[in-house]
Structures are given as C-alpha cells and as structure tokens.
Design a protein around this nucleic acid. Structure first.
Lengths: 226, 226, 226, 226
DNA sequence: CATGAATGAGGCTTCATTCAT
DNA sequence: GATGAATGAAGCCTCATTCAT
C-alpha cells in the first residue's frame, strides 16, 4: 500500500467519524476531540489531515455532493432505456434515499448554499462563514455544485421531449418542488427522531405518498391556481 | 403605564432584538452582547429579563408558537362559512406566510422537536439540550405544542365531512405532506437568500405551485403508487 | 419620632438582616439583594444607608465589638464585689456566649484583624481589603478595638493582685489561651451545624469542660513543659 | 518517566500553586488565572487537570487530609513504645504543626465540614456548596474523613488503658478540646499575621502553654465545674 | 506521523453599584 | 427617601488550535 493510499484511508476514517458527530450534534456543538475519539485517533492527528473544523465540514460537504453525483450517474445509467419521467422520479427517489441515509447531507447542502450566498450579497460575513469560505474544499465544491441540478433538469427535459412528462413548467421549478419536499421530509423526520413516528403516521406510507405526489405533478398539464 | 406593562414592553423589545440576531446568526453564533446592542440596552439588562441564552431562545419559540396559534384561530374564524378544503388551504397558506416572514420560526419549531425528542429517548443529552429543557418556557411550550397540529387536522376532517376534501387518507398524513413542503420551501429560500431567486425560478410562481399542489392533493381520491 | 431616629431604626433593620445573611453565606457569597429582601426593603435603600458591601460588613463588625464592650462593662459591674478570677471567668463566659449567639461575630473580629494586619505589613493588598479599609467604620473600630482585650487583661491583673489567680503568666497570654479556645469551639460547632452534635459529644458538656479548663489554668501556678 | 508520572507531577505543581493562592486570598477571591500564573502555566492547563475551581479546592482538601493521615501514622509508629499519653500529645502536636505550616489546612477541613453538613440537613444549598459536593474529591474525602479522629481517639483510649491518661472523660471530648484549641490558635495567629506577635505574647510561649494545658487536661481526674 | 498536553481568545453569567422615576 | 431597572467590570469555563516530544 502506498503512502498516499494510507493517507487517504486515514482521511476517510476521519470523515466517517466527523459525519457521525456532526449529524448528532450539529456544527457548533461538535467538538474536535469527539471527532477524534470517534475515529479512534488523537486530536492532533485530525488536525494533521484537516487543519480547521470548518475545513473538515466542507470536506464532508464535498464528499456528500460527490456521492450524490456518483449515485445520480448510476441511476441515469440504469434508467437510460426508460422514459424520462421514470428517470426523473428515480433521481428524486435516489436523492430522497441519499438524504434519509443521513439527514446531515441535507444540512450540508443547505449550509453550503448559505455560505455561498454571503459571498455574493454584501452581508456582514461572520467569522464562521469566512472560515468556511477559506476552505480549499469550498472552491472544489463550487466546481461541482451545479451538477446534480443539471442532471436532474436535463432528465426532466428528456421526459418532456419524449412525451412522458406532461407538465410544461420550467424543469427547474419542478426540481425545486421535489427538492423542497424532500428537504422538508428529511428535516421533520430527523427532528422527530428516527425511531419515533410523527403523529402516528407510518413513515413508509408518508414517503410513498410523497413520491406519488411527485409523479402526479409531472403528469398533470397544469395546476389550478389557488 | 403600570410597572408590569413597562416590564412586558421591555421583554418584548428584547425578544424582537433576539429574533433578529438569532435569525441572522443561529443559536450558537449569537452573542448575548449582540442581542443587547440590537435592543439598544446593556448585556446586564438582557439577563435581568431572561436569565440564560437558552431561556431567551425558548421564550422566542414559545412566542412563535403562540403567534401561529393566534393566526390559526383568526384564519379559522374567517373561513368558518367556507368549505373545509378552503379552511385547510388557508391554514397552510397562513403557515407558509408565517414561516416566510421569518425563517427562524421554522427552525425554532424544528429545534423544539429535537429537544423534546431527547426527553423521550434515552439519548445522550448534551449540555445545550439540558439547558433548553431547563427553561421555564420549555414547559409552557409543552402545553401548547399540539394546538396548531390539532387545529389543522380538525379543519381537514371538517373538509372530509362536508365533502370538499376527497382524499381519504389520514388527516395527519395530509398535514405532514403540507408541513414538510412548507418547511422545505422555507429552508431552501432562506438558504438561497431572500433577494436571490433560486435557479432563476420566480419565488411567487414557486409558492403558487406549491399551494396548487396541495389543493390537488386534497382533491384527489387516492394516489397511484410509484 | 425624629427623622434621625427613623434613620437609625432603618439602619438597624438593615444591620440585622445583614447579620443573618452574612452568617449564613459568608461575605463573598452574600448578595446585597438578599440583604435587602431579608430586611424587607429594596436594594437601593440598602445602598442609601451603606454605600458599599464592605462598609456594611465593617458596620456590622463595629456593632459587634460595641455589643461585646457593653456586655463586658455590664459583667464587670456585676462582678465588682467578687474576686478577680470570678470576674475574669465571667468575662470569658460572656465572650463565649457572645460568639455562640452568632458565629459570625467571631469571624468579624478575625477578619478585622486580617484587614488591620495588611495595613501594617507591606502585603499585596487586594481589592477587598482595600475596600474594607476605606470604610468609615474601619476608623471607628480602630478606636475601640483594644477595649475588650484591655478590660479582660485588667480583670486578670486584679485577680492576680487579690490573690485569686495564681498563674503568674502574662495576663495577655492567659487571655489568648481563653480567646483561642473560644474561637476554636465556636468554629467547630458552627461548621458542624447547630443541630448536629460533633462526635456524639454533648455540646453543653464540652462547653462546661472548656470553662473548667480555663479556671484550672488560672489556678495553676505554672505548667510543666511538654 | 512515564506519561502518568508526568501528569501527576503537573497536577501536584498546580496543587502547590493553588495552595499558595487559596491561602492568601481565600476561595472566593482566588482567580484561576492567578493559580495558573503562580504555577507558571496557562489557565487552560489548570482546567485540563482540574475541571472546576471547586474541584481544585476539594482536591486540596483531600490532599490535606491525606497528609495529615500520613503524618499521624508516622507519629503513631514513632510513639509505639511510649505510653498512650505521649502518643496522644504527639498526635496533637503534629496536628498543630500541620495547621501552623499552612493555616489553609484548618480552613479546608472546616469548610469541608460545612459542606458536608448541608448534605445532611435539608439546608438551602447554594450554588457553591452544590458545586463542591459535585467534585469527585468530595466522595474521596468522605471515605477518609474519619480516619484522623479515629486514630487520635484510639490513641487516647490506649493511654487510658495503660494508665498514662487519668482523665476518664470520653476520648472524643478530650479530642474536641484539643482540636478546638488548635483551631483557635491557628486562626488567631493567621489573622494576626505570621510575623506579628499578638498582644506582645511570644508565639512559642503561647504554643508551649497550649500543649502544657493539654497534658494537664489528660492528667487530671476530673474538672471542677465552674 | 501520532500524541495529548498547553494555550488563550472568546462568550456566558454574576452582582455590586448607579440612577431615573 | 424608596424603588428596582440598568449598567458593565470581572471571572469562570470552553474548545479550536498549536506544539513539543
């Protein structure tokens, strides 16, 4: 095993540990010591691989987006032979699974958006935001951030073109409707606690309805306005 | 003006300031000093009215829920003459407005759920959670937490009974679908920044579609499964 | 009732309250708010009469010494007809009662001695000590501090002269032996708690033995050295 | 030198520094920053070894009692061949030396007794007391607190049995008389300041008399009541 | 490279004191 | 005079980060 490989394994171990800890405590309440102990190493070593807490967080964000992109390509590959609506729903489904696997993923992307925003707006950038933007991973994410969105909207367009999707709204709008539903679903479930069923509603039924609603949306020509 | 009234006014001023600061920085990055200066008073005075940061946060949560409940009652009063579907959608709409007015409100409730959860589960309660549960407002919230949900599900039931809502799913499920969509919508918009339109989609169009989708949902007998 | 009289009554109420609170919590852990509430008045009023916490403490010290002096004169008056040994022991006894009535009295005098000492030594005077020395009562105490000691040593001398006291040691030494026993007795009892008997020894027996030991001491010509 | 050894050395250095500072300023006026600088380290390091000020104080208390116990065993070992009265007086003497070496030791034990008392009584436990009781050392002290008393009373009993001690009072009572004298002696001397002689009485003479008085006490059959 | 002790800036909170009413 | 809200200096403690071994 090369030195580089060993380094990468260790980096991955840290990332895995960080994922657990950030997911349980959130960014602010996560202690580097806890990440280290979760990874079975010392604090110093964590700092050897990730020089700030913010950098570690951004590395995790980068990885999450990479995973999502990989998954999306895989789904697209599987769905190539089917109509666009199936590919689109499969993408949404895989995104939902992705977020359910670890609610942190949804937060990571939301946080990235927030950080990214303050770069543009002239907002009073606080220390935290500035530190996040300093991360090398911040730049790396900027290069790939649009890929998931791009893949999904392209698939919707394919569905519109092959006639399987009837809704003629902007693909981006359709994506936002799906994305926000997913985020809300994940947020509520995560806040309620994984074991707990919210309002006595079965989570599986809920998820199924959510997806059914999305299909419905793609099949409808237009919505009546409220 | 009585002494008690003056006290309440000051408490409200602090709460207003806290709302701004928590909304901008989140709980962890909010400094009591900042809340004080935002309220135009000194740090000590903030502590005179709210003895911990956590208590201030919970007071805000309590107020948010109270506001929501007040708004709900008002909406229900206005919708009394109309069929249940209109009342239900009006409630959802008012909830959406409520969260859009200040995205912090959505977070407050989500955070409350998380805190509340650790009370039930035997989770490894951290310092923050424990402090939040110590707040007098935590107890007060427990007494009213179920009212919004109850009001909305009752209105859905009225709609089912008067025949305006055709979907025969559990009202709770319908509520969750609406609730999660709303949270996702608010979260995404707040992350993107108020001035920024996400993916070049007009927010008003997005919101309209969201509500249309909800009406659709209530009018459909049942969804096809994916 | 004159204005001046009313003032004095109020000052005395505050002093009484302060006595209770200082006795229960010690100087550092006593809050002016607590003194005020104990006196049934507001914090501002306490400050109207005693402009610093240290001043209040020194006022209490002054009063304690005054009380002790008054008591000593009274005892001396009662004992005038009896031999000096009886007068001396009666003084010691009254001192013991004085300290037992409120253990704070012993502390007040000890603290005064400490504060007084740092005036002489070139010690690194801390803020607290400096503030105590600033009190107007500090000066007043300086004028009367030696009276109790003087009264007791004079009475011992009278006993030596009238032949009732056989111990020819310095009266000051005899006083110190009595004084330190008393302080130790009070300290231990106060630490143990008033209701609690220490090591299952009856406090009354202990006190009796203590006084017997002192009489013994005055009656003995000289001690064997250890 | 092992890691564990180094840690213990550092812990001891901090304890030594804390001893000086607490002795000079008392608990309330001691600043952790001062302890740190006295130890030649930073505040953070102090907290690395002792997580609260109260814990540090209790650690010191524990050490003081341990030292006393060690000293007592040593004295008992030396006195094994001599009659019980000599052993008893030697113990008292060593206790006196122990307290004179650092008056803080007497305070530590007194404070411990006070803290311990509020555990039993249903007293309105204040923050400080609660924090002291939370210390891990508080528990450790509870396990050894009775040893010094036990050793001394046993030695007195030995003296009674071998006929060297004639006083037939409870050994516990005799111990209390000795203990309180010692505490009073130390308190007065510490308040007066080490360099200062109180009332122009030579401290060595005073101490000698104190010990002579104790021997006297053990040799007397019974005291006349006052 | 790994460790874990050491650092110190930063933030929460307390409470003596002040001051407007 | 009395009140109690307002102030802010001061001190405890946390924890990201550094660094000697």
């Amino acid at each position: 095993m090369t030195t580089s490989t060993k380094r990468n394994i260790k980096k991955q171990q840290i990332l895995d540990a960080a994922e657990k800890v950030f997911a349980n405590y959130g960014f602010a309440n996560t202690k580097m010591e806890k990440v280290a102990s979760e990874a079975g190493i010392s604090k110093g070593t964590v700092y050897f691989y990730y020089d700030t807490k913010e950098n570690l967080y951004m590395a995790l964000t980068y990885q999450a987006i990479q995973f999502l992109i990989d998954r999306f390509y895989q789904v697209l590959d599987e769905q190539r032979a089917y109509p666009g609506i199936e590919g689109s729903l499969a993408l949404v489904h895989s995104y939902l699974q992705f977020c359910e696997k670890n609610p942190l993923y949804a937060d990571l992307m939301l946080d990235y958006m927030t950080v990214n925003r303050t770069t543009r707006d002239g907002m009073d950038t606080n220390r935290l935001t500035a530190a996040l933007q300093d991360s090398i991973y911040y730049r790396k994410i900027q290069d790939i951030q649009n890929i998931p969105i791009s893949l999904i909207t392209q698939e919707i367009k394919r569905g519109v073109e092959d006639g399987s999707i009837l809704n003629k709204q902007q693909p981006e709008l359709l994506y936002l409707l799906a994305w926000s539903s997913t985020i809300g679903f994940v947020k509520l479930n995560s806040a309620a606690g994984k074991r707990q069923s919210l309002l006595n509603v079965d989570v599986d039924v809920w998820r199924t309805q959510l997806l059914a609603q999305m299909r419905q949306m793609l099949l409808v020509t237009s919505f009546e306005l409220v």
